[in-house]
Structure formats: C-alpha cells, structure tokens
Design a protein around this nucleic acid. Structure first.
Length: 947
RNA sequence: GCGGGUGUGGCGAAAUUGGCAGACGCGUCAGUCUUAGAAGCUGAUACCAACCGGUGUGUAGGUUCAAGUCCUAUCACCCGCACCA
C-alpha cells in the first residue's frame, strides 16, 4: 500500500542528492520550463497552484529522463497588499509575514514532490532582488519610458491605491472587487503604448495558445484610420478627430467631443451656453464607468452654442456637441460623427434630430436578372417610394402584369429635379393619389444592377429611398398606359414582407419598419465628391491620400491599451528610486546607490487620500539631491505588484549575481523560456507587462531575445465539488495538505492530472481522488505478480509498446488524462496475468514516474532495479511491436455495424472485399436486395452498400 | 454589441481528425473472499424493446457509402472585452 511515509522517504533522498538541479552551460540540450511563481499568501498553497505546476512538472521529469538539461525553477512574488493588510491588522512586520509564508509554501511544495531547482529560489522582496527591479526602472526612466503625469487614474477607495487599467477591468478592483473611481492624481506611468506594435508583432514569433494570443491582441486593440483636423470657424484653432472610417468623411453631420475636452475651456468666451456644458460634464464625471456604459444606453449630450467647425473638404459648417459616449481617454477625445454609418452616431442623431447623410450605398446585384455580358451599361438616378395609407397600416405595392415583379413605386429623377419632388410626381403619375402629408428620406441608399430587358441595356440605378404618407384618399384617374402595366395593391406589413420580390425593396421596407438603421457593411461611395464610385476599402486609401496631400489629416493607428499607471500608495513594495529636487526636478538615484531599501517602520497604514505611508517617515523622505547635493525628497509611492514579476524569469538564470541582473552568457544559454504555463487571468496583466519589460531590455541590449517566452499554455481552473469557483465564502475550498496527508502526494498529483482536459476547468471530486489512490495501490501491488524470468508474450509486448508510445506523446501534448487512462488500462491488462515478467513492469515505472514519482521510485527499489528512476533513461517504443497479425474489422451494411470479421492484417482491400462478399452472414441482408458497392478502409471498417 | 469557448451515459470524461460513440475513472449492481465489515479480486452497467431489432453526441436541416467530427441555420451556458470612434 502506498502511504505518506513513502513520500517522505523519497523527498529526503531528493533533498540530499539534488537530482533536479539545472546545470549552467551543460552540453545536454537545455529546456527552460516556467510556471507563474506564486504569491505567498497566508492561506497557503491552493489545489489550483498544484494543477498549474503539475503540468510543467510532468513534462520536466519526463524531459530529464529523456536527457535534457532542465531548468524548472520556483520563487515568490511576495510584495503586495494581502501581506501588508495582514501586517496592519496584526502589527507583525511584512518581512516576517513574508518569510513565514514563504517557509510554509516551500514546505507544501516539497510535500507534493515538485522537482524544482530549489537552489535558484528568488524572492522579489529581498534587496538583492529588487535592486535590479529598481535598476530596470532607472533604465526605463533614462529612456523616457517612465514619466510622471497628472491625469485621471483608476483609484480603489477600499484598498486606497491607484490601479492600472489592467488591474481594474470592468471598472472593478482586481483585489477587492469594489467599484473603481476616477481620481486626478500625479503618478508614475510607464509608456507601454510605445511598445504596442512591438508587442503585437512579437506574437508572430512565439507559440502561444490561440486564445492567449487573441486576448492579448484584443487588449492591445490596434485600429488603423486617420487623424483629421477640423478648423473652428472664426478662430485659428482646430479640433482633431481619430476615425477608422475616413471614407465616410462626406457623411459628417456633427462633431462630438468628450465632456472633458480641453478645447471647451479654451474657447469658453465664445461659447454662449458654457454653464450648461459644465453642468453636463460634472454629471458625466459623477457616473461610474459602469453607469456610463450600462445605464447610459440612451444617448445624452449638449449642443455647444457659439462654435462651429468647418468641414475640411466641403467647407460646410458642422455643429459641435458634447456627449459622454465619447471618451477623453481614447483617440483624441473627439469624433467626426457619421450617423448614416455608425450605430452610436445614428442613435444620437435620431434623438437630437440631426441630419443623417448616407454616403455608402448598398451595391445590390439582382441575381434573378443580372447584368448581361456585352450589353451597354446605362446609369440612372432614381427614387424608390414607399407610400403609406392615410388611415390604415397599409402600403402600396405594384403588381406588374407582364412581369413577375411585385414591388414599390420607382421612377427616374429628371435632370435637375429634387428627389423628393420626383417621388411625389411618381406617386401621382403611377397611383393617382394627390394629397401628400409628408415625404422624407430614409437615410439609406442603394445601387441596383440588373438587365433591363424592355430596353435591352444593363442598368446601374442609384436609388434614393423615400417614404411618403398620404393625407387622404383623394385620387385622380391614372393613364390607360399605366393601368395596362400593373395593378395597385394595398398590403399590410406582413403581406409586404411576404410578397415583395425585389430584394432591395424588401430591405428598404425592413429598414423602414425598424425606423431606420445605419448601413455598416461594405458598399459604394455616393454623395462623396471625388470618392464617388469607390468601394469602402479603396475610398479609405484615397481619402487618406487626399487628407495628407492637403494637410488636413494623417494616417494614424490607435490602441485600446493605455499607459501603465506604475504606482502604489503602499509600504510593501519596491521604492521608486527617484528624488524630487526643487532645482533639478526628478532625479534618478545613482546606480551604485541601489538598492534603495524600505525604512524599518511599524505603521503601514496608508493615508486617507491616497498618500503612501512612506510619506510620513521624514527620516526616509528627506535626502539630498544626487545631482546638486541640496536637500530633496524621495518619491514616496512604491512600485505596483507587477514590477517584480515582470522579469523574475531572468533572475532564475543567475539568481545570486550581484554585478548584473544576470550574467550575459548564462542568459544566452538559457533564454528563451521554452515553455511557460500559467493562468488565463494573467494574459492581460503579467504576460503583457513582462513581455513589455523583456522587449525593452532587448532593445537596450541586456537580454539576447526579443520575446521572453517561446511557448505559452494555460491550465483550467479547479472548481469546488459543487461546480462553483472555489472560495472561502462558499466553503468549497479543498486544501492540498489534507489530500496529501490522507492519500499521499502522488494521489494528489495523479488525480489533478486525471481530472479532465488540462486547459479546461473541472470540478473537484473526492471520489475521483480515491480512484487515483486505488490505481496507485494497484501499481504498488504489482510486486506480488513480478517474476524475475524474462518471459515475453507478443500480446504484452504490444500493450507495453502501445502504452509507452501513448504516454510519450500525450504528456508532450499536455493530454495527461488520457496518458493516465492508458497506464490504467495497461495495469488492468497486467492484472489479468498470473505472473508478470519484470520487463513489463520496469518501463511502466519510468513512464509513470513524471506523474507519480514517489510510488514509482519505491517500487523500482523494491523490485531491485538498478539505481533510481530519476537516474534512468526514458524507454523507447518499437513501432513494429504495435502491429497485429490478425485484425478485427467491423462490417457495416448501409452504415450500420452488422457483424465483425477477423482477417490477416496483411490482406489487401480487394481480398477483404472478397471475404466479405462470401460471408454467410451477409446473405440474410440480401433478400430482394443486391450489393451496390463495397467500401473497404484497411484496418478500420468495411461498408457494404446494398439496395 | 464584439471576440473566444463549451454542449456526448447517473457523474468526470475519451474518440488516431470523416471510419465500430462512450476508452479510462467515479457511482451503481452482482459474484468472490471474510465470523462480519472494510479493503481486495472478478464481472455487468447509454437508452427503448428485452427474440430479431430500434434510438442515441443541445435543436433543425444538409453534404457523404459513412458525421460527435464537415457545411447552413438555431438554442443554451461559460469566459474575456466593451459607447474603441
């Protein structure tokens, strides 16, 4: 029986012999495996950690047996709020808390038997480590990538800290889930946006799981378009907008500014309703992010009275609005609004009665009556008219007598004629109704392309869609000519949708029923001067060329990602190595003055108003300027938690170096990290940050690779037994210590990998744990069946080679669950034997060793194999042993399996077909039926098609 | 709204990429061992009819000799982003 004593025995041996130590510059092929180092919280290790680490653990143990020089390090990301909060509550110094927690974590990690190289442990809170975190910060400062700025930042009132965008996703604090507010504060920022393109491009040279890559791309959120200037009438000022749709510039009917837009204050004197704007701005600022997004589906805004902008191409005057659907934090904080082709602008224009000008027409090819090759093309301007009944909810359709058409009224626009008047004229001519109550455009245009049989030409008709309401039923007689051509029908909505058989007319009616909607798809530019006739893609290009040539605008990319608010108003973090001098400004410390350590204090409570506790410690704050020597003050904010973790994988390579963050040659030997496994939750935080720092370090020649991680995978969550996310409040947390104490470390290890697909979340099951234990006990009991004699059987040879192959491939693919299932099956096969030669047991212990190292070492020793499993060589499989002499084929009749057939595996398709055709069992299915076809898929299946 | 994912027995899940659906494990049932229990060992276990057979991978269609797998719609749930201009 497998018990905890076995764990302890082998853990002592590993401690002693250190078989998992990585060797710098070894001739063996290197393999650098990384897991996200844990935050050593007081709660201790979680089963989630165990799952996260077990994936790489199994791979590393296997790789070592396969002859690789494996670096599998561990460390602790130990700066952070929980430790500090605990210190505040208990009065115990965070240093002490951290050390205790790390000791506890280490004990737990070792009790699971992880094969980390414990000689390389790093702790981000030691001065030896954070000296280099500060050093990197100074480099960033030197290159202008760290700057201090007063802006609106995310602030968590509960934690009393500034949060980066990445830490306040969805408007909630990452740590405590409270609503984040916007606070104006001067903070350190890192210019990660300058690296946006490099971070995007870098994704091309690495192998990240698709969803990891996609999430990073989305987070960076690149969009290309143009930045365009709109001059403000009667001033020398202009408003700049960013747009991804420069092609729609002729459709601009208003400008929309964020309420905070600075131009408003600058032109205060010209604005007649400034007070109203300020009131609106204040109201907008009071809303939380959540309210602004979720509750404000209804658009609001205020017209800016007194200023207008000039359309840079047409010279038309365009009104200016402020609205909170435009964000100061994205683009230029102002947009050119094109209601006809943008949903939000459309809603806004509808609500405030602003003109909607379509500039992209649906290019509609009539599939029933397409243009013909070799026929003349004629262009035509036309109207399509929807006529609404004066009292009922009915509409006019024309049912043509000689054609199959049922459609709306259409007609050409005569030279110089107003389309609305043309529509009215057509209605009178074609229906006789004379009293028009209203006529208006539906802000949507389309182009019909068809062959006009009666004129023998191809027509390209530019259609404007017009809605006419009748005042009453007064009607004139229409001409006989018209009467001969069609009947007039009054149809209900439903009948309209059902009967109209011209696509574009149906679409027109649908849009009408929705009270209009913007056209967002591709199409042909209309009403757009020199852009007319182009499609959207080309129009963008031509528009940008024009803008650049005329100095109106430039091509421009924008990013969703914002600069990184790099400051915490807390004690337990890396001090920012900058001094504020009245004369010299912000002055960096000299490199040999690093590390700048934290003062030893016993009050860690942050100030009410987002002040760091360090600010209160005069003896620390007051210093001299490294530049001029006059009295100066230290920066009192500390770095955020993500600082230390942004480069820790470099320190593992050379953890004790005091001259550099790591030795250049060692970096060259070990980088890149070959495989990094971690959680999805870090994809838009740590993973982005560390790629940014690494790329920066590459750019300044510190590291040899552009990208830190060659491959990135993720593990799924372990949910509680109730299928819910594990949490203290739900009381569904499983403590790994309990499992180890009761069932042993290998049981935990095996169960965690057997639980389901590695990247998918899976619920915990206590019974499943027992199943894993049962399997390991069955393995342990194999010693009772073990025979020294070398007795072989081809069946066992095949089974053994199969399982070696399966496990070898599956572990590499992180398909641990099926690897374990295969080994279970193999053990089941061995159990059917009275006695099993040791040659069938030895390789099993090796392939099971990465997952259950304690059990396999123990049995290895018990069966008297030489040395230890960790000193052995991973078994090879022999493909030729996998083949069977005889195979069983399923015979299907019309796709349903009817019987099985055992044949020599050497037979070819034709002979198998003959055997099947002659099989007695086939006869009963052939009553009144004949064989039509026989499909033989060698070594798979035979399908007999009869009928 | 956009992006990604998932849907298969009582449960966790497999399925060589189009070729015998449900491997392996849990649970359940039966047998065996035992004074007895636990553990162990052996076997059964998708559903309906229980004789031939029929039905089954969220739902509805389609392609194919053959579909969990491919195509077209559609529903449900989960995750991420979100007035992104």
């Amino acid at each position: 029986m497998y018990s905890k004593e076995i764990d302890e025995k082998w853990q002592r041996i590993w401690e002693d012999k250190k078989p998992f130590r990585a060797e710098d510059f070894s001739n063996k092929e290197k393999f650098y495996a990384l897991i996200e180092f844990p935050y050593p919280s007081g709660v201790g290790l979680h089963v989630g950690h165990a799952r996260a680490f077990m994936g790489m653990e199994a791979i590393c143990r296997k790789k070592r047996l396969q002859g690789y020089n494996v670096l599998y390090p561990i460390g602790f990301d130990a700066f952070g709020l929980p430790t500090e909060n605990y210190a505040m509550k208990t009065g115990i110094h965070p240093r002490k808390v951290t050390d205790d927690n790390i000791a506890n974590f280490t004990k737990q990690l070792k009790s699971i038997g992880f094969s980390f190289d414990y000689d390389r442990v790093v702790d981000t809170t030691t001065p030896e480590y954070f000296k280099w975190t500060q050093w990197i910060f100074l480099k960033l400062f030197e290159k202008g990538l760290a700057y201090k700025e007063k802006t609106y930042v995310n602030y968590c009132p509960k934690c009393r800290v500034i949060l980066a965008n990445e830490e306040s996703q969805g408007g909630k604090c990452d740590r405590c889930d409270s609503q984040v507010i916007q606070k104006e504060k001067e903070v350190w920022m890192l210019k990660i946006t300058e690296y946006a393109d490099k971070l995007l491009e870098g994704l091309n040279e690495v192998d990240f799981m698709p969803r990891v890559r996609i999430e990073q791309e989305n987070w960076i959120g690149k969009s290309s378009g143009a930045q365009i200037k709109f001059n403000i009438k009667d001033t020398d000022r202009f408003i700049e907008v960013f747009t991804t749709r420069p092609d729609t510039i002729f459709g601009v009917t208003y400008m929309a500014l964020a309420p905070e837009h600075p131009i408003l204050d600058e032109l205060k004197d010209k604005i007649s309703n400034f007070d109203e704007l300020v009131e609106y701005r204040n109201k907008a600022n009071q809303k939380t992010e959540f309210e602004r997004v979720e509750l404000a589906k209804d658009k609001t805004g205020v017209l800016v009275k007194g200023i207008e902008v000039v359309h840079p191409i047409t010279g038309e005057l365009v009104p200016v609005w402020i609205t909170d659907y435009v964000m100061m934090g994205y683009g230029t904080g102002s947009i050119m609004a094109v209601p006809a082709h943008d949903t939000r602008d459309y809603e806004f224009a509808k609500k405030f009665g602003i003109n909607i000008k379509p500039v992209i027409a649906w290019d509609h090819l009539d599939v029933n009556n397409p243009p013909r090759e070799g026929k003349q093309n004629t262009d035509r301007q036309a109207v399509v008219v929807l006529v609404k009944h004066w009292s009922e909810d009915k509409y006019i359709c024309l049912k043509w007598k000689k054609q199959t058409w049922i459609d709306l009224i259409t007609g050409g626009i005569e030279e110089g004629e107003d389309p609305i008047l043309a529509a009215i004229r057509e209605v009178k001519e074609e229906t006789g109704y004379i009293n028009i109550k209203s006529a208006s455009y539906l802000p949507f245009e389309h182009i019909d392309r068809f062959f006009a049989a009666h004129k023998d030409v191809n027509r390209v008709v530019y259609q404007k869609n017009i809605v006419i309401e009748l005042e009453n039923g007064d009607c004139q007689e229409t001409s006989q000519d018209e009467k001969d051509q069609y009947d007039i029908l009054w149809l209900t909505k439903e009948e309209m949708l059902e009967q109209i058989n011209i696509d574009s007319h149906t679409y027109f009616f649908e849009v009408y029923l929705k009270d209009g909607e913007p056209w967002l798809k591709d199409g042909i530019l209309v009403n757009s001067g020199f852009l007319n006739g182009l499609d959207v893609e080309n129009a963008k290009k031509v528009a940008i060329e024009y803008l650049e040539k005329n100095n109106i605008g430039v091509a421009k990319n924008n990013y969703h990602m914002k600069d990184w608010a790099f400051a915490r108003q807390r004690y337990w973090g890396e001090p920012v190595p900058i001094v504020k001098c009245d004369d010299c400004g912000l002055v960096p410390l000299k490199e040999n003055d690093l590390p700048l350590t934290l003062p030893d204090v016993d009050n860690f409570i942050p100030g009410e108003d987002g002040e760091s506790p360090l600010a209160k410690i005069d003896s620390w704050v007051n210093t001299v300027c490294p530049c001029c020597g006059k009295p100066a003050k230290r920066e009192t904010d500390t770095m955020p938690q993500w600082a230390g973790s942004s480069w820790y994988f470099l320190r593992y390579i050379d953890p004790k170096n005091s001259e550099a963050l790591a030795d250049k040659d060692k970096l060259k030997y070990w980088l890149s990290v070959d495989w990094y496994n971690g959680g999805m939750e870090h994809v838009t935080r740590h993973l982005i940050y560390s790629r940014f720092w690494h790329r920066f370090l590459y750019d300044i020649g510190v590291v040899p690779t552009k990208e830190p991680y060659a491959k990135r995978t993720t593990q799924g969550l372990i949910l509680g037994p109730d299928g819910e996310k594990m949490s203290k409040s739900r009381g569904n947390v499983v403590n790994p210590d309990d499992i180890i104490n009761e069932y042993g470390a290998d049981t935990l290890r095996t169960y965690i990998l057997f639980i389901g697909e590695y990247s998918q979340s899976a619920p915990w099951s206590d019974n499943g744990v027992k199943g894993a234990k049962k399997f390991l006990d069955r393995v342990m009991r194999l010693d009772a069946k073990a025979a020294d004699e070398d007795i072989r059987s081809s069946m066992l040879d095949r089974e053994l080679n199969m399982v070696i192959k399966k496990v070898t491939l599956d572990i590499e693919d992180m398909k641990y669950n099926t690897a374990i299932a295969a080994m279970m099956s193999y053990v089941n096969v061995l159990y059917k034997e009275e006695k099993v030669s040791k040659v069938y047991i030895k390789p099993l212990l090796q392939i099971l060793n990465p997952i259950a190292p304690h059990v396999t070492e123990e049995l290895w020793e018990k069966l008297g194999f030489e040395g230890h499993v960790f000193e052995s060589v991973w078994p090879k499989y022999d493909e030729s042993k996998l083949e069977l002499d005889q195979i069983e084929l399923a015979v299907q009749i019309n796709g349903t399996v009817r019987f099985k057939l055992v044949v020599d595996s050497s037979l070819d398709e034709a002979s198998i077909e003959q055997i099947v055709r002659n099989d007695e069992r086939l006869k009963q299915y052939l009553v009144e039926k004949a064989i039509k076809k026989v499909i033989v898929i060698k070594s798979r299946i035979v399908n007999v098609v009869i009928g």
